[in-house]
Design a protein around this nucleic acid. Structure first.
Lengths: 339, 339
DNA sequence: TTGAAAGCGCTAACAG
DNA sequence: CTGTTAGCGCTTTCAA
């Protein structure tokens, strides 16, 4: 039924070894003549090797795993694209898992991937399975963490400079004459990104002479109905004239509330929002955003992972920090620098 | 280094066979006593089976492949989620590939997936590799086609009713008093979805007594700078008072042009757009859309695929057609039915 | 109820 | 330059 390497060998009148060598490009050891015979046999039988058997023998599968926590946010689609493109280009296939921010799923997925002998894993960690992360690193299993910092652990990682992003955002608002900048975030105690962005927010304000009393932060829970909470927040803080929103979906929620309350953007309240999206320039008013290089993060993480897989000696763990960028449109009250 | 089934067998003082049986739940043939010993050994050695070896032997890998043509459009992210969730629930892992609408990539990916012995494939076909599709079906390889119809081929598929979607859209515009409805699409001769939507558009107009002369269709090329073409289109067709846009990104392009031209939506021109998105209700004016059940499509396709994989005799190929739904907001000139 | 042995399809010493 | 041979880790007859 299925055609194997033996069939090819038989047909070409050579041994399996020879076929195997030719398949793997060890041409140096073969006559042009036999090589041609084998290749004809391969073609005529429409043979293609069994990757399972190959992997079993060579302990390399050329499959990479990626476990993500969020497929819905377009930012992650971009990251996935970077990972996918790079994998393909470098001859790897990709196994994708969605932890959905759930530690149990994450654990199960990592185990599953290892059972399947994937050569390495790109991991957007929930940051709740510290034990497992440590184990992976101890066993020298190739992993690259992305986007979130895992404290006290010394592995490869590619993250964003969230402090800088927040700083840029707040400075932009201040430069445009705003006096009272509020920050809004989805709460998640495990995750460094939000806390870094808030840190950046506070730092930027302090830098300009604001004191801790001036900080104005609203914490929300993702997935809940937040309209009322946001409304109340604005009612209780009438002096807010600018918002630093740390998430693109959150921004849409906030804008809906502002519209409902007849608060004008950017006249009454200016907005800078995290994450550039396809729709940012099309909504009313066009959004000024902090753009993160998601594709590059995926690309780099994959390159590092593959380098680690392919190198003999363990490379020293590195943390790459990527810079976000400000894209100026109209929601923060300034002209059209970018479009 | 790596712990194998032999190690467990040795530690428990039994044979590999026994361990294997217990791993696979063939309890009936084993004493409680030995079972316990084995399970302790497994735990104490932190053993987990090698899925490659297992797959090599049993010719089942419990891995599914999916090849998509477009990761960027949020519609496909939704589909992917449906596939991912269902796979996980039913004990399968997922290998993801992006053909990027390129027939060569598609071919390579399908071959690759088969080499890796994935148990079946969910395929969003470019519809350019008819030979390969036919071969898959002939060889009884489990495949489910999604979203696009492959002509003359009799395989499982899950698609959307694009004619109905277009009809609903056009009827809605007409019902709201519009007289001259234009349709806009990205051109792709291979793909049934666009032609079906145009067919639905024409059918709906004919139904109301329009003739072929009244049809007004703009074909664009995805990825190109279409602003000027769209602008010219409106300049040359001043009487257009409604647009049926067949793609969500296209809609954003069109809206930008209309804004530029100071044409008011929905006062001057009403819009109904294909595909519901997260941002649809937040743009100005909130978009009336045709919503497609993408998650369900992914879910169903995966269920059918797994059923085919697990059943002894080939099930008869079925085509499931899912219905789109109109979500009424303001871009087509009517009140708030849905929000 | 358990085990021995063969083999899934491939690769890699080691000989020749 | 090519072939023989011995496994990779697991499942599965078949026999005990």
């Amino acid at each position: 039924m299925k055609v194997t390497i033996s069939d090819v060998a038989k047909k070409a009148g050579v041994s399996k070894t020879t076929v195997s060598r030719i398949l793997n490009g060890n041409y140096s050891q073969t006559t042009d003549e036999t090589r041609k015979r084998v290749q004809e046999a391969i073609k005529s039988l429409d043979y293609s090797p069994n990757a399972l058997a190959k992997g079993l023998k060579s302990t390399r599968t050329n499959v990479l795993g990626i476990v993500l926590a969020n497929l819905k946010n377009p930012f992650w689609t971009t990251v996935l694209e970077g990972v996918e493109d790079t994998s393909r280009e470098m001859g790897y296939n990709l196994m994708i898992c969605n932890s959905n921010e759930d530690e149990e799923y994450e654990l199960k997925h990592i185990k599953e991937l290892r059972m399947r002998q994937v050569d390495g894993i790109v991991l957007h960690p929930t940051v709740k399975n510290t034990e497992m992360y440590r184990k992976l690193l101890e066993e020298n299993y190739p992993v690259v963490f992305i986007n979130r910092r895992v404290p006290y652990l010394n592995g490869h990682s590619v993250v964003m400079d969230n402090i800088k992003g927040a700083t840029i955002a707040v400075n932009h608002l201040l430069k445009n004459g705003r006096k009272k900048v509020a920050a809004i975030l989805y709460k998640n105690p495990y995750v460094s990104t939000w806390s870094e962005r808030i840190e950046g927010y506070k730092g930027a304000l302090r830098e300009k002479g604001y004191t801790d009393n001036d900080f104005c932060v609203l914490e929300l829970v993702e997935g809940e109905k937040n309209c009322e909470v946001i409304t109340r927040f604005f009612e209780q803080n009438k002096d807010i004239d600018a918002i630093f929103s740390t998430n693109n979906m959150l921004t849409l929620e906030v804008q809906a509330v502002l519209k409902e309350m007849k608060i004008k953007v950017p006249e009454d309240v200016a907005i800078v929002s995290y994450d550039e999206t396809k729709w940012a320039k099309f909504i009313e008013p066009p959004l000024t955003t902090i753009s993160q290089p998601g594709y590059e993060m995926g690309e780099l993480a994959t390159q590092i992972l593959i380098k680690e897989i392919q190198s003999e000696k363990k490379p020293i763990p590195s943390t790459i920090v990527l810079n976000p960028e400000l894209i100026v449109r109209q929601s923060a009250g300034e002209g059209l620098k970018n479009i």
